[in-house]
Computed example of a mutant assay.
Amino acid sequence: MATIDPVYTIASTATGGGRDGQVVSQSGQIDLDLQPPKEMGGSGDGSNPEELFSAGYAACFLGALRATSKQAGSPVPDDSTVTVAVGIGKDDSDGGFGLVATIETYIPGVDEAKAKELTENAHAFCPYSKATKGNIQHNITVRV
Rank of each mutant, 00 (worst) to 15 (best):
70 K>L: 15
70 K>H: 12
71 Q>M: 15
71 Q>W: 06
72 A>K: 06
73 G>T: 06
76 V>I: 15
76 V>C: 10
76 V>R: 07
76 V>Q: 03
77 P>G: 08
78 D>P: 03
78 D>H: 01
78 D>M: 00
79 D>L: 07
79 D>H: 06
80 S>T: 11
80 S>E: 10
80 S>F: 09
81 T>S: 15
82 V>Q: 01
83 T>K: 13
84 V>R: 00
84 V>H: 01
84 V>I: 01
85 A>H: 03
85 A>Y: 05
86 V>Q: 02
87 G>P: 02
88 I>E: 06
88 I>T: 08
90 K>P: 09
90 K>M: 08
92 D>P: 10
92 D>R: 10
93 S>K: 14
94 D>Q: 08
94 D>V: 08
96 G>D: 06
96 G>F: 05
98 G>V: 01
98 G>F: 03
99 L>D: 00
100 V>F: 06
100 V>H: 13
102 T>P: 00
102 T>W: 06
104 E>Q: 13
105 T>E: 02
106 Y>S: 15
106 Y>E: 11
107 I>L: 14
108 P>F: 10
110 V>L: 10
110 V>M: 13
110 V>H: 07
111 D>M: 04
111 D>Q: 08
112 E>H: 14
115 A>Q: 07
115 A>Y: 05
116 K>Y: 02
116 K>L: 12
117 E>L: 14
117 E>M: 10
118 L>E: 03
119 T>H: 00
121 N>E: 13
121 N>Y: 05
123 H>Q: 03
124 A>Q: 14
124 A>V: 11
125 F>A: 13
126 C>N: 00
129 S>E: 02
131 A>E: 02
